[in-house]
Design a protein around this nucleic acid. Structure first.
Lengths: 224, 224
DNA sequence: AGAATGCTTCGATGAGGATCAAACCATGCG
DNA sequence: CGCATGGTTTGATCCTCATCGAAGCATTCT
């Protein structure tokens, strides 16, 4: 008999289809209401509510009450990382789909990972930022380079304020299998991309689709 | 309703206590027989056998038949990574144990992670190898440095033969939260440590305990 | 061949948990 | 207020699946 952290408890929380769908939906990064999650999971409201209590009790979700709305979100980056790891195995092990549907293709290029950008574009961006010495990569510990503050300030992102979460973090990309940028800086960049309308979120998907001029602007700023 | 890789299927496989215990046991890296796994999981042999079929069908295990023995092992590094990710969340979310027992302390210093060394010692080792330019770290992609071949050849490890698995890989350490060395080189180094009797495996645990002279030898070779 | 060991399959049992309808709170609106 | 909307709780139903004893294969040892 083994001891230690109760991994079965956590895994079984993810192991129910309804809950798994809810968690996948929340990987989009935006917090959702119980009704929205019920819809995503394809179950009735009471059922969803029951599942949400369990996920809360298990510490996988956070809850923000606003008036009569209650917004559920992932508890943190660690939980998001776990979901990605499980997704990776499911992808590798699951039925090899002959044709990767069009939505999958878009997902590989750019998608939302919790609160930051993932996919080929995100990996390329981090590589380029490191090449230009704006960020310094040393193991998973990504740090700000000397010119980082001025560079990001120029595009309206403040890297000085120090919140609880680290500014930079590496996050292993699910499709590319290399790291992309997470942390508050990664989140701020995604915010910027959406605020500038360089890209829009695909409905009911994590995919992020750049507009032609948006892509140009993005490349100018981050890959230039 | 969501589509995509069936994450619930994978997670529910890990979500049963008996199966979770088996997988945890296999994180030790050595393949085990059905009877050994039944003992680990605290279930009868028929029950264990049933669980093992499910894990096989789910693609989480590999099977090597040798005579009348059937050795079950983890299907690969990706599966091991997933287990570590889940363990991390379970640890973070679970009941904060006031005192980390002595076994936990040993685990933090050095333990087996699938087929290579993990823990503080392993992280320190990788850092030092990178500092000395024996290995080159660039993102998760760790590569051999110019002097790697001769350096490892000197201690009887051949880094030339190219198997299917990559020679070097970074693996995020569960306790230290930084990367340590995985891949065939990581596995070879662990083999060396155990072959030279610098350390021994703690019984029924993933902990690795160095002997005083063994630690000295290890530090001389890898941290020197 | 016969016996012993290692493991899987079969069958029956039982418990946990997913589900939804209906009833029940809570907040916001007119 | 009273009604509507968003959410949770309760209760009853149903079904999956974990469990183990007994029997069945397979491989090795003598």
């Amino acid at each position: 008999m083994r001891e230690g952290p109760d991994i079965a408890r956590i895994a079984s929380l993810v192991g129910d289809p309804a809950r798994a769908n809810m968690l996948s939906a929340l990987m989009g990064g935006t917090a959702l209401t119980a009704s929205e999650l019920a819809l995503e999971a394809g179950v009735s409201l009471p059922t969803a509510s029951s599942h949400l209590s369990k996920l809360m009790e298990g510490g996988l979700l956070t809850l923000a009450s606003q008036g009569r709305h209650r917004y559920y979100g992932l508890a943190g980056p660690q939980v998001a990382g776990m979901i990605e790891a499980i997704t990776g195995v499911a992808e590798a092990v699951g039925p090899k789909r002959v044709r990767p549907g069009p939505r999958d293709a878009a997902m590989r290029v750019a998608r939302v990972c919790y609160d930051h950008l993932a996919g080929e574009q995100a990996v390329a961006m981090l590589d380029r930022l490191v090449d230009r010495n704006i960020l310094l990569r040393d193991d998973k510990e990504i740090r700000l380079g000397p010119s980082a503050a001025s560079h990001f300030a120029a595009i309206g992102i403040d890297v000085y304020t120090k919140p609880r979460r680290p500014v930079c973090r590496a996050c292993l990309d699910w499709s590319v299998r290399r790291s992309h940028l997470a942390g508050t800086l990664g989140a701020a960049i995604l915010d910027k991309i959406l605020a500038e309308k360089w890209a829009r979120r695909e409905k009911d998907s994590r995919a992020v689709v750049f507009t032609p001029p948006g892509r140009q602007a993005f490349e100018k700023v981050f890959l230039g």
